[in-house]
Design a protein around this nucleic acid. Structure first.
Length: 544
RNA sequence: GGCCCCAUCGUCUAGGCCGGUCUAGGACACCGGGUUUUCAACCCGGCGACAGGGGUUCAAAUCCCCUUGGGGCUACCA
């Protein structure tokens, strides 16, 4: 029975790395009949946003990673926001202080930086020098009177610490290489390290599953558990997901792409761009010189304005690109982990049923979007009609597609006609023409040239003929349309493409759309004829 | 720089703990062909890896060491 927890800090959207951690927390708990707890680590007052926690929860729910206990699902271990547990942490800080296992310190950031710099110059690892005589409460009063910052550090014992890791085996650390790290910040909030250890104990967490980036923190955590008389949970440090450029996949990947795009843009109106991003030009300059990174909404807005595609990193990015949560879950489950057997396409339930912690591997993995696309294609085929419809409607809503709000029957037809589509966005792209007014169809230049104007406008000639035939049809449905188009092709001694493509471009402006018979049927006779007329006029058929 | 982790096709991985059954399996990508009213989907075929060097052993992808390469951490962030 494993009690696991996912403990995000609400600093932005949920990203791939976080989602993967949360997934394995869920798998482990479900497989063993345990519990999965969500805890919000909002101990950094400067970086947390109220909406971010909500966003992270929405993203988890969208993925189908539902917690058993946490915000919105209160349980015995609450509250689940660390900012609401300050008194708890203070009690344990007291305990450590009284036991002489922690001590006050008053260093300024400047002084700390100087010490680090000096250590770096000497090519030495910086270890905070513990004072020979630890400051007492009188020293604290004095420091406060002088308006100094007061922090508390943990006494890291000078001994070997062994981490027994489920995925990595035994990893040994030397206590003397590790600084007496800060556990209580000058603003009265605990640091992550401290709050995390306290809460894991109090919430009865038995298995800590997290990314390898936390491996180095673990000896410190274990030392604190010892000092406090806590149990040490089972640790599992998973491999990390890296992105194409190398390095841990992070939200900064998006900013990086945007930055390059901005630099490449000629004749850029910096003021306008900054205002679109809701930032100052100074901030924009800071971004360009690498001094700072704007937050997500700013990055997104500027990217949209410049029309650059950013790599998906956050869960919402994948949602907006038309991916299915099932595919995403399936895909990230197979990063740094493998299910038994050759089967790769798995549902969440199958992942739970077959979950086996000994199947983690230690190697970092690259997030391959092409493979994700393939997984998505498979899940598109697997999903039932109703769920696909509801996913599709959600998607149309967020991308503000003209098809948003269309009636279910039509959307179902569109979905059915889109068999083989790889993403929800594919369906939308191929069927948008149905939801756009005739006058607002945008004609793709290349396609018009290729199928309509080439060879003395043979495409337009075909269109004119098509219109006649269409009007003569006794009834308009898929069969009659098909029969007519095939008949015309045969009569003209050409392939069906020669007939269908001009018609396609006429009704949707491009050579890519739903199957043509179906398309015409859905559009209706009147609208189809109107679009043919429009096309004929626009490209000068009457003048020839 | 210091500390720590890792190393199988281009990518994700199986196999490794219990050395022989591995002339290394699967998936994605790629290439070639088929199907086809577009884009997809679909079908068939192909290319393609044990990082390098030392050991141990009758035998090493599998165990050990070194080198090289990649990654992480090195905050009053989590």
């Amino acid at each position: 029975m494993a009690v696991t927890r996912f403990a995000p800090s609400p600093t932005g959207y949920l990203h791939i790395g976080g989602a993967r951690t949360a997934l394995f927390d869920l798998l482990w708990a479900r497989k063993t009949g345990g519990r999965f707890i969500l805890r919000i680590e909002d101990t950094d007052q400067s970086r947390n946003s109220l909406t971010a926690a909500k966003q992270v929860m929405d993203d988890l729910k969208w993925l189908g990673i539902q917690w058993d206990e946490g915000p919105e699902i209160e349980g015995p271990a609450g509250p689940y926001y660390q900012s609401q547990r300050l008194d708890i942490y203070n009690r344990y800080i007291e305990q450590l202080l009284n036991a002489g296992k922690a001590y006050y310190c008053f260093d300024t950031t400047d002084k700390l930086n100087q010490m680090r710099k000096k250590a770096a110059e000497n090519k030495q690892n910086f270890v905070y020098p513990r004072p020979v005589k630890l400051p007492d409460s009188a020293d604290v009063e004095k420091a406060k009177a002088q308006d100094k910052d007061v922090m508390v550090r943990f006494c890291m014992p000078d001994e070997e610490v062994v981490v027994n890791d489920e995925v990595r085996g035994q990893v040994k650390f030397n206590g003397r290489d590790i600084s007496d790290f800060i556990i209580l910040k000058s603003d009265g909030f605990p640091t992550y390290h401290f709050a995390c250890v306290i809460d894991d104990e109090l919430m009865g967490i038995t298995h800590v599953v997290r990314g390898q980036e936390h491996l180095m923190n673990t000896p410190g955590h274990i030392a604190m558990q010892k000092a406090l008389g806590f149990k040490t949970p089972v640790y599992a440090h998973m491999s990390i997901t890296v992105s194409e450029g190398g390095g841990k996949m992070s939200k900064r990947d998006r900013a990086k792409v945007l930055k390059n795009a901005i630099k490449k843009t000629e004749g850029l109106d910096k003021e306008k761009l900054a205002s679109i991003g809701g930032i100052s030009t100074t901030q924009l300059d800071g971004f360009l010189t690498g001094d700072s990174t704007p937050d997500n909404p700013a990055v997104d807005a500027m990217a949209e304005f410049l029309n650059v595609e950013l790599p998906e990193v956050n869960i919402v990015d994948f949602f907006k690109s038309g991916y299915l949560p099932q595919a995403l879950v399936n895909f990230i489950a197979l990063l740094g982990y493998s299910a038994p057997g050759d089967k790769e396409i798995l549902t969440l339930q199958e992942l739970i049923d077959t979950f086996d912690p000994s199947r983690f591997n230690k190697t970092n993995s690259l997030f391959d979007r092409k493979k994700l696309l393939a997984f998505n294609t498979e899940h598109m085929k697997m999903l039932g009609e109703e769920e696909l419809l509801s996913r599709y409607k959600d998607f149309l809503e967020v991308v503000k597609s003209p098809a948003a709000g269309a009636d279910d029957a039509l959307l179902k037809r569109v979905i059915k006609a889109s068999q083989g589509a790889r993403t929800l966005a594919d369906i939308d792209h191929k069927s948008r023409f149905l939801f756009i007014e005739t006058g607002k169809i945008e004609y793709n230049k290349k396609d018009v040239e290729k199928v309509l104007l080439k060879n003395s406008a043979e495409g337009l000639a075909m269109l004119a003929e098509l219109k006649e035939q269409l009007l003569k049809l006794p009834a308009l449905n898929e069969e009659t349309i098909e029969k007519m188009l095939r008949g015309l092709a045969e009569q003209k001694q050409v392939g069906l493409g020669k007939v269908a493509q001009p018609l396609r471009v006429a009704i949707c402006g491009t050579t890519v759309s739903l199957p043509i018979f179906e398309s015409i049927d859905m559009l209706g006779l009147e609208e189809t004829v109107k679009r043919i007329d429009n096309t004929l006029n626009k490209f000068g058929w009457n003048l020839l």
